[in-house]
Design a protein around this nucleic acid. Structure first.
Length: 256
DNA sequence: CCCCAGGGGTACC
DNA sequence: GGTACCCATGGG
């Protein structure tokens, strides 16, 4: 259902291009196309106008960004990063797709992660139109052959994705339950999976399980922390919305 | 604790 | 058209 609404404190480009989601592409005409769940979406921002077929919950349009950034520490580097990319919001993604995508992300750069996810969707997902496919369910990945997964350029990650898919498919891992768990416990559950360490576990908790204090530290965030702060800083320094702060630091560091 | 596999795109020469 | 480089995790 196409919509046209007025948005404040929202930056579509920053939100879709800050490395948290891998299925969006910017068209030459400025529209973004992407698959969320079983639907293809098309969305464009012009100034304060957001138009198209978009999912307000996915884009976190209902949260107050000023209320979140007000909880951040008041240091100058973070303030600058927030000001520069103002409007960047954390998306609310589906846990299985997020887990599988971030397992695939291990030692890959964003372009390659996008390619892997695209291969998986084309090979195992449901067609939505001539060019777009949904992200495959855990059951389908659980039944896939190792060779088919390798053909999706997963490399040594193929066995990790399949192990995760099997645990989710047979009910040993309940991804929906992670949202209600205490942060530490949820992280432990995820890190019990082969191929999921601290960084990937935190990405899943932050982008798909509502744990907004989760603070994934990848090479870019590490670089930002070392470059911007004189002394070592702990994730807890950034407060209860540390994950939001981290995303601003990440995006800022990559777009220096 | 340190060291290194791993792999496809990218950037540089 | 080589070649170094990127990068999270696991395993030695």
């Amino acid at each position: 259902m196409p919509k046209r609404i007025n948005v404040t404190d929202f930056n579509l480009a920053a939100t879709l291009e800050c490395g948290q989601a891998f299925r969006w592409s910017r068209q030459p005409d400025g529209w973004y196309e992407g698959v969320v769940g079983q639907k293809l979406h098309r969305v464009r921002q012009t100034g304060d106008i957001l138009e198209g077929d978009f999912d307000s919950h996915y884009l976190a349009l209902n949260v107050s960004l000023p209320a979140i950034t007000a909880t951040f520490p008041k240091d100058a580097p973070l303030r600058r990063a927030v000001k520069k990319h103002w409007g960047l919001r954390l998306t609310r993604q589906e846990p299985w797709e997020t887990l599988a995508s971030f397992i695939a992300s291990s030692t890959k750069q964003i372009v390659q992660i996008r390619q892997i996810v695209e291969h998986l969707a084309r090979r195992f997902g449901e067609p939505l139109n001539a060019t777009h496919f949904s992200f495959p369910s855990p059951d389908v990945i659980a039944r896939a052959s190792h060779e088919e997964l390798l053909a999706c350029k997963l490399g040594f990650r193929a066995k990790y994705i399949q192990a995760a898919a099997r645990q989710v498919a047979d009910g040993k891992l309940n991804l929906a339950a992670l949202r209600k768990m205490e942060y530490e416990r949820a992280l432990e559950e995820l890190m019990a999976l082969p191929g999921v360490g601290e960084k990937i576990g935190n990405c899943v908790l932050l982008f798909s399980c509502g744990h907004e204090n989760a603070f994934p530290i990848d090479v870019w965030v590490r670089r930002a922390l070392e470059r911007l702060y004189r002394h070592p800083v702990e994730p807890s320094y950034f407060g209860r919305y540390a994950g939001w702060a981290g995303q601003y630091l990440f995006h800022n560091e990559r777009n220096q």
